[in-house]
Nucleic acid binder design. Structure first.
Length: 273
DNA sequence: GCCATTTGACCATG
DNA sequence: CATGGTCAAATGGC
């Protein structure tokens, strides 16, 4: 929990998989993080937040146990974010990290030297944390390689509860920094509750930032808050790229590839409602 | 002594 | 009842 991964030797790829499921109205998404052994493998747990491990469990038919973490500031700031970390069976260098809930705490970024509080050590681990913006930009840089929207799963889920299937895939865009980014389903709760998947969470050693679009806005804690999410907004985001291989601009970034499923129900009244 | 981790027990769910 | 998720006492490091 207290180690840091240097920017120089942390080579990894992330397969982020937004599992916008419909349970308990908590946003959940899964990120697959690959850490190469040569980069001084220490595990993928440094995502910029401060986690406290509260359990470990052997999972049926899984080689490796699953670890359970919750936000260190669960009580101090009523932050109920949790995550589960499980090493992949196939590739021991790959970790599946399932995040559940969004952070309410304000300790994720290093740049928030707030007025001294009795909880002095709350900031002791923050000095080298990159901001969420920094992480985000890293991902978006790789996003240039490939981004597509996949709606295949829509039919498998209750359309009334899960209106959104968004599976952008970033892969092989950058040299050794391949990130695969998948967002499956996102429901209302996920969008409207300060939801912050890893691509907007602090992690990367890079020093950049991004903004997704006018419909989203970074706050001071590396989170993206959707100020509004209307149909037109999303259309704005994706429409520019449905028939060309040019590089549409998404926020501060250009995308080399963006495929949009023509059947994607942007006109679904429930979509991002 | 404080705090995080470990680990077996307990609980919830299907 | 099997499995996954959480609790909490014990443990260890600083």
């Amino acid at each position: 929990m207290k180690r840091r991964v240097s920017a120089a030797d942390f080579h990894w790829s992330t397969n982020l998989f937004l599992d916008g499921y419909c349970r308990k109205s908590q946003p959940t998404w899964t990120e697959q993080v690959k850490v190469s052994a040569e980069s001084g493998f220490e595990g993928p747990t440094d995502d910029g937040y401060s986690w406290r491990k509260y359990g470990q469990k052997d999972i049926l038919r899984a080689k490796y146990p699953r670890s359970y973490y919750r936000c260190t500031y669960r009580h101090m700031q009523n932050c109920w974010a949790t995550k589960q970390v499980q090493r992949s069976d196939d590739d021991p260098t790959v970790f599946d990290i399932t995040y559940r809930g969004s952070h309410n705490c304000h300790h994720a970024t290093y740049c928030a030297p707030q007025p001294t509080s009795p909880e002095k050590q709350e900031f002791k681990n923050q000095a080298v944390y990159p901001t969420g913006q920094q992480y985000s930009n890293q991902v978006l840089m790789n996003l240039r390689a490939n981004l597509r929207v996949n709606t295949n799963d829509l039919d498998k889920n209750d359309p009334a509860a899960c209106h959104f299937s968004f599976v952008p895939t970033f892969s092989s865009g950058m040299t050794d920094d391949n990130r695969h980014f998948q967002i499956s389903h996102v429901d209302d709760n996920l969008i409207g509750s300060g939801y912050s998947p890893s691509f907007v969470s602090p992690t990367t050693p890079e020093s950049n930032y991004f903004s997704v679009s006018s419909s989203s806005q970074m706050n001071g804690y590396g989170m993206v808050h959707n100020l509004h999410h209307s149909e037109s907004d999303l259309t704005d985001i994706f429409s520019a790229n449905t028939s060309t291989t040019s590089s549409p601009i998404v926020g501060d970034f250009s995308l080399d590839h963006l495929e949009l499923d023509p059947n994607f129900p942007f006109d679904n009244p429930n979509f991002f409602s």
